[in-house]
Amino acid sequence: MTEPLITADLVDLDLPSDGRREAVRALAERLVKAGRVTDIDRFLADIEAREAQMPTGLEGGIGIPHCRSAAVTVPSLAFGRSTAGVDFGAEDGPARLIFMIAAPEGGNTDHMTVLAALARRLVRKAFKNELLEATDAGHVADYVQKEVAG
């Protein structure tokens, strides 16, 4: 049995906009609550380490904080949407869609294939638009899951 990449409780359609760290922490806490991350401090440190190499903000209002971390048990996606935007260091301004990708340190190829499929969706306009307009967390989770699996 494989656990879904994302569930409704990993979706935050109204992410706090006071800063990158706060937004990242809010999403990380959802992962902890869902039992997908065991140690939040370690996980956040791994996220920050990746962010320090090069900011993960992308053109078009997207931030993808991500890492492989020993604190992650299941490959997971936490999704946050911010109305005001959170600065992830992209050249064209703050990110409105934030995808936190958590990969287990020893993830096998199957895990990684799912995450690769997700990453590929992130650059598609239709995918972004659907998420920008969604009103319901459950719908977002189902949509993403379906896109990634299909």
């Binding site: 990746r50 190499q53 090069m54 993960t56 992308l58 993808i64 991500h66 890492c67 492989r68 990708i101 990969a103 990684m112 995450l115 690769a116 499929a117 997700l118 990453a119 590929r120 969706r121 992130l122 650059v123 598609r124």
Partner: peptide, 18 residues
């Protein structure tokens, strides 16, 4: 890319589309 889980595949997709 350094982590090999996100940018690698996003770039691949973007190049294929373009």
């Amino acid at each position: 890319c350094p982590t090999g889980i996100a940018h690698t595949y996003m770039a691949a997709e973007a190049l294929e589309v373009a």
